[in-house]
């Protein structure tokens, strides 16, 4: 689904991404975790073509060239908590636009069916600007999933959802991943969400991969009991300026067999 090697990106004096390797195979659910400024969003945007990296290889659904990767985006869904809805557009029209961009011949029907799947069809004829942040988030996830993508990329997707709605959205995402074999690449600061959704966790810091592997394997290696503890442990280690190689990234990946 996604194969990234040696990804680098600098913004003026700041190195946002510093040689990241990342692999997501079909049907796999992977979380990118790290503190603010770790390079998560730049990595996602680079993979999706919205940022051109300075170096590295990106292969999206088997496509490497920029032009071919743009075509491959027809089978990729993207939603982010920070993406807003346009003014003067009803939800159904907004979703129909993206259905057309993804190649649907019956965009309104597809949009309505996707809204029903997330139990959100009552939002169809509301104006985008009238929605609460939670409702906008749901519409964003509907937009990203309505074409049953092979790879779903979510950047802080449930940041503004009520707990009960977030639980339902997570259940729907898991259901979709299992039913359609959809691969999931997600970033989140909500550690319990990552624990529920992801099979594999990639910790980033200062644009580098610190750890990559299944959560239970990482926890055992680092002697921590939860993802939050692992996060804090790695933050502390980084604060003490321990080198990234302190954490045996490669061996964890080999143990999991997930990414290599």
């Amino acid at each position: 689904m996604l194969y990234v090697r040696g990804l680098r990106k600098r913004y003026r004096q700041v190195t946002a991404v510093d040689g990241i390797d990342l692999t997501v195979v079909a049907g796999e659910r992977v979380a990118l975790v790290g503190p603010n400024g770790a390079g998560k969003t730049t990595t996602l945007m680079s993979c999706l073509g919205a940022v051109h990296p300075d170096a590295g290889v990106i292969e999206l659904l088997g496509q490497r060239s920029v032009r071919a990767r743009r075509s491959a985006l027809a089978r990729v869904g993207f939603a982010a908590g920070y993406v807003s809805l346009p003014t003067y557009l009803r939800v159904i029209d907004y979703l129909a636009l993206y259905a057309r961009l993804y190649g649907s011949r019956r965009p309104h029907d597809q949009a309505m069916a996707a809204l029903r799947r997330l139990d959100a069809d009552q939002l169809a004829h509301r104006w985008g600007v009238e929605l609460s942040s939670g409702q906008r988030t749901i519409v964003g996830i509907v937009k990203a999933t309505m074409h049953s993508p092979a790879l779903l990329v979510l950047d802080e997707p449930t940041a503004s959802l009520d707990p009960d709605v977030a639980i339902r959205v997570r259940a729907d995402l898991l259901d979709m991943c299992e039913q359609h074999g959809t691969a999931l690449l997600i970033t989140s600061h909500n550690m319990s969400e990552v624990e529920r959704l992801a099979q594999r966790v990639v910790f980033l810091n200062a644009g580098r991969v610190l750890v990559d592997g299944p959560l239970e394997v990482i926890a055992a290696r680092l002697g921590q009991s939860s993802l939050e503890d692992i996060f804090l442990h790695l933050r502390e280690a980084n604060g003490a300026k321990l080198p990234a190689t302190e954490v045996p990234t490669e061996s964890l990946q080999a143990d999991s067999g997930a990414s290599l």
């Binding site: 496509q63 743009r70 075509s71 027809a74 089978r75 557009l89 636009l97 190649g103």
Partner: peptide, 21 residues
């Protein structure tokens, strides 16, 4: 879907989508 995205029909749908939007 990827092949369709690169064909004229897919392109026309996207152009039409932007115009309608």
């Amino acid at each position: 879907v990827i092949a369709d995205a690169g064909r004229p029909g897919g392109s026309l749908r996207r152009i039409g989508g932007v115009a309608i939007r």
